[in-house]
Amino acid sequence: PDFTLHWNGITIHFKGIDEEQFRHLRELLDRGVSLEELEELAKELIK
């Protein structure tokens, strides 16, 4: 499924991740993950 997340004025689209992965990403963003960390995470998910 696809998810869209609005965070700090940025709209991020996640394609092909499951709800569990999306929930994990939201928790990280709510905790204050940096954009660099988010990019690293995205690379991991894409593999």
Results as ranks from 00 to 15, higher is better:
residue 5 L to F: 06
residue 37 E to H: 08
residue 28 L to W: 12
residue 6 H to K: 09
residue 41 L to N: 02
residue 24 H to F: 15
residue 7 W to F: 09
residue 22 F to N: 00
residue 39 E to Y: 14
residue 26 R to E: 04
residue 18 D to A: 07
residue 1 P to E: 11
residue 21 Q to T: 14
residue 6 H to W: 05
residue 11 T to H: 14
residue 34 S to P: 10
residue 16 G to D: 09
residue 42 A to D: 01
residue 42 A to F: 15
residue 9 G to P: 00
residue 3 F to H: 04
residue 20 E to A: 15
residue 21 Q to L: 14
residue 10 I to T: 08
residue 43 K to I: 10
residue 27 E to K: 14
residue 13 H to Y: 13
residue 16 G to N: 11
residue 3 F to Y: 11
residue 28 L to Q: 06
residue 24 H to D: 02
residue 36 E to T: 11
residue 41 L to A: 09
residue 41 L to G: 01
residue 21 Q to F: 12
residue 9 G to I: 01
residue 25 L to R: 00
residue 17 I to K: 02
residue 3 F to T: 01
residue 19 E to M: 10
residue 10 I to D: 02
residue 12 I to D: 00
residue 9 G to A: 01
residue 46 I to M: 10
residue 46 I to H: 08
residue 3 F to C: 05
residue 10 I to M: 10
residue 12 I to V: 11
residue 39 E to H: 11
residue 38 L to F: 09
residue 11 T to M: 06
residue 19 E to W: 12
residue 18 D to H: 07
residue 32 G to V: 11
residue 30 D to L: 15
residue 40 E to C: 06
residue 19 E to N: 08
residue 17 I to G: 02
residue 23 R to E: 04
residue 9 G to F: 02
residue 13 H to Q: 12
residue 39 E to Q: 12
residue 25 L to N: 00
residue 43 K to F: 10
residue 41 L to V: 11
residue 28 L to I: 08
residue 41 L to K: 05
residue 7 W to A: 07
residue 29 L to G: 01
residue 10 I to W: 02
residue 14 F to E: 00
residue 19 E to D: 10
residue 30 D to W: 15
residue 35 L to R: 05
residue 21 Q to D: 05
residue 41 L to E: 03
residue 1 P to G: 14
residue 11 T to E: 08
residue 17 I to N: 02
residue 1 P to W: 15
residue 47 K to P: 11
residue 11 T to N: 03
residue 24 H to T: 13
residue 5 L to H: 01
residue 38 L to C: 03
residue 45 L to K: 02
residue 14 F to L: 09
residue 29 L to T: 02
residue 22 F to K: 02
residue 38 L to R: 00
residue 28 L to M: 12
residue 4 T to L: 07
residue 34 S to V: 04
residue 15 K to M: 11
residue 2 D to I: 15
residue 46 I to T: 07
residue 41 L to S: 02
residue 39 E to T: 12
residue 1 P to H: 14
residue 15 K to V: 13
residue 24 H to Y: 15
residue 34 S to I: 05
residue 40 E to V: 09
residue 22 F to P: 00
residue 11 T to F: 07
residue 8 N to W: 04
residue 23 R to T: 06
residue 42 A to E: 02
residue 36 E to P: 08
residue 11 T to K: 09
residue 39 E to C: 03
residue 26 R to V: 07
residue 21 Q to Y: 04
residue 40 E to D: 10
residue 20 E to Y: 15
residue 16 G to E: 07
residue 24 H to M: 15
residue 34 S to A: 07
residue 36 E to I: 10
residue 29 L to R: 06
residue 20 E to S: 13
residue 19 E to V: 12
residue 25 L to E: 00
residue 40 E to G: 06
residue 28 L to P: 00
residue 41 L to I: 14
residue 21 Q to N: 07
residue 44 E to F: 08
residue 26 R to F: 06
residue 29 L to V: 07
residue 23 R to I: 07
residue 28 L to N: 03
residue 27 E to Y: 15
residue 42 A to W: 13
residue 37 E to L: 09
residue 27 E to V: 13
residue 32 G to L: 09
residue 18 D to T: 15
residue 27 E to C: 15
residue 15 K to G: 10
residue 28 L to T: 04
residue 36 E to V: 10
residue 12 I to E: 01
residue 31 R to D: 06
residue 12 I to Y: 11
residue 45 L to T: 05
residue 10 I to H: 11
residue 12 I to L: 13
residue 2 D to G: 14
residue 10 I to F: 06
residue 21 Q to V: 13
residue 29 L to D: 00
residue 44 E to G: 08
residue 1 P to T: 14
residue 41 L to F: 12
residue 39 E to K: 11
residue 5 L to Y: 04
residue 20 E to D: 10
residue 25 L to K: 00
residue 46 I to G: 11
residue 10 I to G: 03
residue 3 F to P: 01
residue 19 E to Q: 13
residue 32 G to R: 03
residue 37 E to P: 01
residue 14 F to G: 01
residue 17 I to V: 05
residue 23 R to P: 01
residue 44 E to V: 07
residue 19 E to Y: 13
residue 24 H to I: 14
residue 35 L to I: 12
residue 4 T to V: 12
residue 31 R to V: 07
residue 29 L to K: 03
residue 37 E to Q: 10
residue 10 I to C: 07
residue 44 E to P: 00
residue 33 V to Q: 03
residue 6 H to C: 04
residue 25 L to D: 00
residue 31 R to K: 11
residue 37 E to R: 12
residue 32 G to K: 03
residue 31 R to F: 07
residue 1 P to Y: 15
residue 12 I to Q: 01
residue 38 L to W: 05
residue 25 L to A: 01
residue 13 H to C: 12
residue 6 H to A: 07
residue 47 K to Q: 14
residue 3 F to I: 03
residue 44 E to I: 09
residue 47 K to W: 08
residue 5 L to N: 00
residue 19 E to P: 11
residue 12 I to R: 01
residue 23 R to H: 07
residue 27 E to M: 15
residue 36 E to M: 10
residue 15 K to E: 09
residue 45 L to S: 06
residue 4 T to R: 07
residue 40 E to S: 09
residue 15 K to W: 15
residue 7 W to H: 08
residue 46 I to V: 10
residue 32 G to M: 08
residue 27 E to N: 15
residue 44 E to K: 07
residue 7 W to P: 00
residue 20 E to F: 15
residue 28 L to Y: 06
residue 14 F to P: 00
residue 37 E to F: 07
residue 9 G to H: 03
residue 39 E to D: 06
residue 42 A to C: 08
residue 39 E to V: 13
residue 9 G to S: 03
residue 23 R to Q: 07
residue 35 L to A: 06
residue 4 T to N: 03
residue 3 F to L: 04
residue 8 N to V: 02
residue 16 G to A: 04
residue 40 E to F: 09
residue 47 K to V: 14
residue 46 I to N: 12
residue 21 Q to C: 08
residue 4 T to W: 09
residue 3 F to R: 02
residue 40 E to M: 11
residue 43 K to W: 08
residue 19 E to S: 13
residue 41 L to Q: 03
residue 8 N to K: 11
residue 33 V to A: 13
residue 14 F to N: 00
residue 33 V to P: 05
residue 45 L to V: 07
residue 27 E to H: 14
residue 29 L to P: 00
residue 23 R to S: 05
residue 27 E to L: 15
residue 3 F to Q: 02
residue 40 E to R: 12
residue 46 I to F: 07
residue 6 H to G: 03
residue 2 D to V: 15
residue 35 L to S: 03
residue 46 I to Y: 04
residue 40 E to K: 13
residue 8 N to F: 06
residue 3 F to W: 08
residue 28 L to S: 06
residue 34 S to C: 03
residue 32 G to F: 09
residue 32 G to N: 06
residue 32 G to P: 02
residue 7 W to D: 01
residue 47 K to M: 14
residue 42 A to P: 00
residue 7 W to R: 05
residue 5 L to V: 07
residue 19 E to A: 14
residue 19 E to C: 10
residue 38 L to Q: 00
residue 17 I to Q: 01
residue 38 L to T: 01
residue 10 I to V: 12
residue 22 F to H: 01
residue 1 P to L: 14
residue 33 V to F: 13
residue 34 S to W: 07
residue 26 R to P: 00
residue 30 D to E: 13
residue 44 E to N: 09
residue 29 L to F: 15
residue 8 N to P: 01
residue 22 F to A: 02
residue 46 I to Q: 09
residue 37 E to I: 11
residue 24 H to N: 07
residue 6 H to S: 14
residue 44 E to C: 09
residue 39 E to G: 06
residue 32 G to Y: 06
residue 45 L to P: 03
residue 3 F to E: 01
residue 38 L to G: 00
residue 26 R to S: 06
residue 27 E to D: 13
residue 37 E to Y: 09
residue 13 H to R: 10
